[in-house]
């Protein structure tokens, strides 16, 4: 078990080194920072001095090593556009994105699993068929359209919920949270639904098809033949067996909720890292882009590690293999 975790952590580190290389390469190959930093009135001597000061004359790997060393300490350099440390800017923005992702993740998982089970058990029922048909809309409509439709209905026409921003935030030990104020909570609802709707329908359809598969197995028939109640059969025996594939997909989806909140954040002007990234691209703010890339890859790697550990926690057969492998 320990060797399994160690091996996974090692692989994760390798992945991070490679993405770090890509992030670092952006500095070198997407424009010359010296050009950007020095104005029109520059001499060759100025350029040389700055190069020397910035360490740009060092060998490639020395520079990469320096970059990694600083990145590990959260130092991604200084934003070209805002002139502030990138780490600081991201730390400001990250809580907004994480809160949004958490809420929409819970929304997607909760509703997705419950509806998935319901549609699998009442496979022939009217309600299940209606839900399945509606879920097609969730899968096929693009995120920005859902966001705009929700804004139109609930903000413009009904006026129930705010159409942009994250409302009033309170600071809890250095973390700006929207969970504690009513305006913060109401501002979360629409973006969270927009961001989570696709994931929810995806999880629901996945849970449903896995459930249908499991309900056909011999051990479910044998559980019924032993006289177990339907509730026990469905929730104790069937559900747990559907979880391994569901966790795989959910893990990846949760990563993309955070990584690709960009569209939702743009539509709702949500002050998160996605919006920051979009602006960074517009202004070729390479330090911010590089930091974002690193942040997202750390998240994906972390989530995948958790997913792998969850497999083992759920399925005893993998424990044995973990030992053997």
């Amino acid at each position: 078990m320990l060797s399994f975790i160690l091996r996974r952590v090692l692989q994760s580190v390798l992945v991070l080194l490679v993405t770090g290389l890509v992030a670092f390469a952006m500095f070198r190959y997407v424009g010359d920072p010296v050009d950007t930093m020095l104005g029109q009135e520059r001499t060759v001597a100025d350029i040389e001095r700055l190069r020397e000061n910035l360490g740009l004359n060092d060998p490639f790997f020395v520079q990469y090593w320096d970059f990694l060393g600083r990145a590990v300490q959260g130092d991604f350099g200084i934003s070209y556009r805002q002139g502030r440390p990138v780490g600081e800017i991201i730390a400001e923005r990250l809580p907004a994105t994480l809160e949004l992702a958490a809420v929409s993740g819970v929304f997607a998982l909760g509703f997705g699993i419950v509806l998935g089970i319901f549609t699998a058990i009442r496979r022939r029922g009217t309600a299940a068929n209606v839900i399945m048909t509606l879920s097609l809309i969730g899968v096929s409509l693009p995120t920005f359209l859902i966001g705009i439709l929700l804004i139109y209905v609930f903000s413009v026409e009904l006026g129930w919920l705010p159409s942009y921003g994250r409302g009033e935030v309170t600071w809890v030990s250095g973390w700006p949270t929207g969970f504690l104020t009513s305006s913060g909570l109401s501002a979360l609802i629409l973006p969270a639904i927009t961001l989570g709707l696709y994931q929810m329908t995806l999880i629901m359809r996945l849970v449903r098809s896995e459930m249908l598969e499991v309900l056909r197995t011999d051990y479910i028939r044998f559980a019924r033949a032993r006289g177990l109640r339907d509730r026990t059969v469905h929730f104790r025996h069937a559900l747990k067996n559907t979880l391994v594939p569901v966790i795989t997909v959910t893990g990846l989806q949760l990563g993309s909720i955070i990584a690709f909140a960009i569209i939702t954040e743009t539509v709702f002007q949500w002050p998160g890292v996605g919006l920051l990234f979009i602006n960074a691209i517009q202004f070729v703010d390479i330090p911010v882009m590089a930091a974002y890339l690193m942040l997202i890859s750390v998240m994906f790697v972390g989530i995948n590690l958790v997913v792998d550990l969850l497999y083992v926690a759920i399925d005893p057969r993998l424990r044995a293999e973990g030992k053997a492998a």
Partner: peptide, 30 residues
């Protein structure tokens, strides 16, 4: 009646037990 008065044994022992629970858990439950 099922499981109480009349029980059933299936063909394939490899698939008739839920892989995620121990034998004790499945027996105790029943």
């Amino acid at each position: 009646l099922r499981g109480r008065k009349i029980s059933m044994i299936f063909q394939d022992p490899l698939t008739s037990l839920n892989p995620l629970y121990t034998v004790r858990q499945q027996l105790v439950e029943t």
